[in-house]
Every structure is written in C-alpha cells, then in structure tokens.
Design a protein around this nucleic acid. Structure first.
Lengths: 152, 152
DNA sequence: TCTATATAGATGCAACTGCATTGATACCGG
DNA sequence: CCGGTATCAATGCAGTTGCATCTATATAGA
C-alpha cells in the first residue's frame, strides 16, 4: 500500500517546520521593514550583492546566480531600483547584449538603513534564540539540504 | 560603531541558509507538482487541513490559524477551490457572518494525487539527505525559532 | 433597546509574479 | 563569411498578492 517513496514521519515533520518557520521569519522581517517604511527584503538582497561587488558592478545574470531570483523577476526589480536611483545600468563594452549594474551612493545609503532594521530582526528572530553552537549545528544541517548538494 | 543589536556572523549565516534552502525546497516541490500538472502547494495545505477536519469541516478563520494564509488570500483560494469542486461552502447556523468549508470527494482525490508527488519530493529533498537523528535535531532547532516560541 | 464596537469574510485596485515569447547580440561549425 | 543555435535581457498577458476598505452579522454597554 505504501510506496517506498513515502516520506518518514520525521521527514514530514521537519519539512513542515522548515516551511512554517521560514515563512514566519520572512513575514516578521518584512513587517519590520514595512514598519520603518523601507523597501522589501528582495531589494536588500540585490543591493547587498551589488555593494559587495563594488564599483565594477555585476551583470544581471551574475545576480541571478547569487540570489534566487527568476530572470524576469530580476529584470523588473532592477528597473524599479533604477527608477528609484538606487542602481545604475551601464552598457558593457565587450557584450552588446548585456549591461552592468552598479549600486549608487543612494543605493548604499538605502541598504544601510535597511540593514539596521533587517539585522535587528535577524538578531531577535534567530541570534537571540539559539546559542552559537546551536546556530552552527542548524547551519550545517541546512547546508546538507542545499541543491546542488555542496561541500561545506 | 556597531550597535548591540547587530547580528552575530553565526546568526547571519544561519539566517541566510534558512532563507535560501527553504526557497529552494519550495521551488523544487512546486516544480514537481507542475511537472505532474497538479495545483500548487498552497492547495495541498488547505485540502490537507480540511481532510483532517473531516465532515464537520472548518471555518475559514480556523484555516487561517492552522496555516499561514492571509485572510484575503485564503478567501480567494477557497473561491478557486470551490470553483473547481474541491470544497463546498456551507452556511453555519449559529453565526450568520460565517461559513463552514468542507472538502469534497473530488477534493480528497486531488489531495491524494498531490500527496503522491509532494511526499516524494519531501523524501528526496529532506528524508534522503539526513539521518533520522539529524532530522530530529533539525526539527527541534527549528522548533525553537517558532513564533510565538512554543514548548515542544 | 439602541448605539458602538468587534469579528467574519469578500472585494476593488494597484503591484508583483509566472509563463511564454521576443529582440538583440554572441558564438560555433562548415 | 553565413546560417543555425545559444545566451542576455525585456515584455505582453494572465493569474496572484497586498492593502485598504466594505458588507454583514454578532456582541457589549449605556
């Protein structure tokens, strides 16, 4: 009756917790940003990657590799960021199809203000709830669920 | 310079993993359902709760408590489920404002077909990647991140 | 009872997402 | 050099989500 692919109770429970907890945490972090009249988490993700990339910027497809945005989604998010003056799009010399995205000073400033709130959320929601050892354990276990399964 | 609310590196890393892994897993599970021409995960969540509730059904606000749907979101999801004949809405005698949602036989059948695929995803993505002990550990750690923080 | 407030659920509208496709350029084999 | 294919990014359209509000009923308090 039960197929061999049926998940074990432990797997189901872990899956359910993972789904529920991650959604709750995202919601909390998003709410905190909204309460401070700041943009959504997705904006921070992009601005963060761009800030790390520095003056040379990143190509959109590189952002897709670093984040989990769908191509069309990122395309439109970048348009919004550009409209807000947080990033600029630069033609790239050696590839006429593409462009390079660079964060502006205003973008850096926005990211800093977001991080002040976002970081506090991370502290409250995660940092304050688990010991350092538990954080390491959790992180390692989650790492084993990544796709493709990578070495840590 | 650094505020006391700044998250520790371990907290940041754990947060990032949690966000990334949970998104990946959802995406994989959704893709598997799509590949089988089945409805999204959200439908399963609702049908599952309703199946457990049995013939007496559930009020929409009870579904909201059990899942993490926003009220307006659930309202429209139920309308879609009703349109597809997977649930039925019943007037409830003692509260003229509300209704009771009951799963139909077609709804149960759809849920079974979804679970065949969904369960396989859970096995592949989680069950097959961690030992039972690790699953228990992960589940317990995630449990400590729930809000409100509950006892296990 | 009558009014004020609270709760259950639906909905108009704007923003966002997913899907499929397009436009444009790059690259590869002959 | 040329045609076919692959890659980068944008977009039309339909479906979904978020926000605010609305309708309807219930409950509490004067």
């Amino acid at each position: 009756m039960t197929e061999k692919t049926n998940p074990s109770p432990a797997a189901i429970k872990t899956w359910a917790r993972l789904m529920r907890v991650s959604r709750q945490l995202v919601e909390r972090a998003e709410d905190a940003l909204k309460d401070s009249s700041l943009p959504p988490l997705a904006w921070h993700d992009v601005l963060h990657e761009l800030a790390e990339a520095g003056e040379v910027g990143l190509r959109p497809f590189q952002l897709i590799e670093r984040t989990l945005f769908a191509q069309y989604n990122l395309s439109r998010l970048l348009a919004r960021l550009e409209a807000d003056g947080l990033v600029e799009k630069l033609r790239v010399a050696d590839d006429g199809r593409g462009q390079t995205i660079r964060i502006t000073e205003k973008g850096r400033e926005t990211r800093r203000r977001m991080w002040a709130v976002y970081g506090r959320s991370i502290t409250e929601l995660v940092g304050a709830r688990l010991s350092n050892d538990d954080l390491e354990t959790l992180s390692a276990l989650l790492g084993r669920l990544r796709h493709p399964a990578a070495l840590e």
